[in-house]
């Protein structure tokens, strides 16, 4: 039976932990709100960009630009977005599991290279001695525009130099604070999304020309996809952390109440014992 003092100490330490998890939850909730806002704000741009691309690519053949042209995939490249920090429930684990699944399914017939963003993913694959082509850690504080630009450049470079025949991006899509879904999308060659959507081709005046516009637009499209994925990932991370910290706080409260019960019982027992001792001593003295 634990002594009173030990139990009291444990309650104290759990209460401290609870305070930390509660604070972390609050911070995450605030950050989540901001991240969610950013996701919403970025949507019109991405949508408009996709519409533009569809419109343009409907006018040219698939060979018009190298970034549109698919080729036999011998080498694939996976861009994996994970978090730098832990304590966010299954967020990183889910992403890593999805990445492992991708490596298993694709790795049999082709080479797969990895670019990893976020310390957690980097650590995991380094421990398992998986080769990482490129890594980005401590990037959470960098403005996502900048990072997206850099990543897009790298990925396009790999595709152009035939180090990769297809580039995929794996990130966590933000559904709600409770649900984040690891999602794989094909980044390059760029999907135009305009295979069936014919019919409403409007007549345009193009300046400087369809090809020139397209070749300027395509790298931007890649960048926007990455940018959006970064925002979604950050919203997901905060959502996952908030949920995890919320349940940690609840667990701590439960633990405190059960320990308090135990402590009261121990106190009661010691009082009863003392009383018994006093009574029996008095009895003996008679």
């Amino acid at each position: 039976m634990a002594t009173l003092k030990v139990i009291r100490k444990r309650i104290g330490s759990i209460r401290n932990t609870q305070q930390i998890t509660k604070a972390m939850k609050m911070v995450s909730a605030a950050k989540l709100r901001r991240a969610q806002e950013a996701v919403l704000q970025a949507r019109p741009y991405a949508e408009k960009m996709a519409a533009l691309l569809k419109n343009l690519s409907a006018r040219v053949s698939a060979e018009a630009h190298p970034l549109l042209m698919g080729r036999e995939e011998k080498k694939a490249h996976l861009l994996l977005l994970t978090a730098d920090r832990g304590l966010c429930g299954g967020y990183n684990a889910n992403l890593i599991r999805a990445a492992e699944g991708f490596l298993r399914s694709q790795g049999a017939e082709k080479e797969v290279h990895l670019t990893i963003v976020g310390r957690k993913g980097v650590d995991y694959f380094r421990r398992r001695q998986v080769e990482i082509a490129d890594r980005y850690i401590n990037v959470t504080n960098r403005p996502p525009e900048e990072l997206a630009c850099e990543l897009a450049e790298k990925m396009i470079g790999r595709f152009r130099q035939e180090e990769a025949d297809g580039v995929y991006i794996l990130y966590s899509r933000f559904r709600s604070a409770l649900s984040q879904v690891p999602t794989i999308e094909k980044l390059i060659p760029v999907a135009t999304g305009g295979e069936e959507g014919e019919g409403e081709i409007t007549e345009y005046l193009f300046e400087p020309g369809v090809e020139a516009l397209l070749s300027s637009l395509l790298p931007k499209v890649v960048e926007v996809v990455i940018y959006r994925a970064l925002l979604e990932a950050s919203a997901s991370e905060h959502g996952a952390r908030m949920t995890a910290m919320d349940s940690a706080t609840t667990n701590a409260a439960e633990m405190i109440s059960s320990l308090t019960l135990q402590m009261n019982r121990a106190r009661q027992a010691s009082i009863t014992r003392e009383l018994l001792e006093i009574v029996s001593t008095a009895e003996a003295l008679k």
Binding site: E203, Y204, L205, F206, P208, A212, L213
Partner: peptide, 19 residues
């Protein structure tokens, strides 16, 4: 500021796409 020089847009402009 268009790629081929500055341009102005008024109502009833032709459909137009530019860098």
């Amino acid at each position: 500021p268009g790629a081929l020089g500055e341009f102005g847009v008024l109502p009833k402009h032709i459909s137009f796409l530019t860098l």
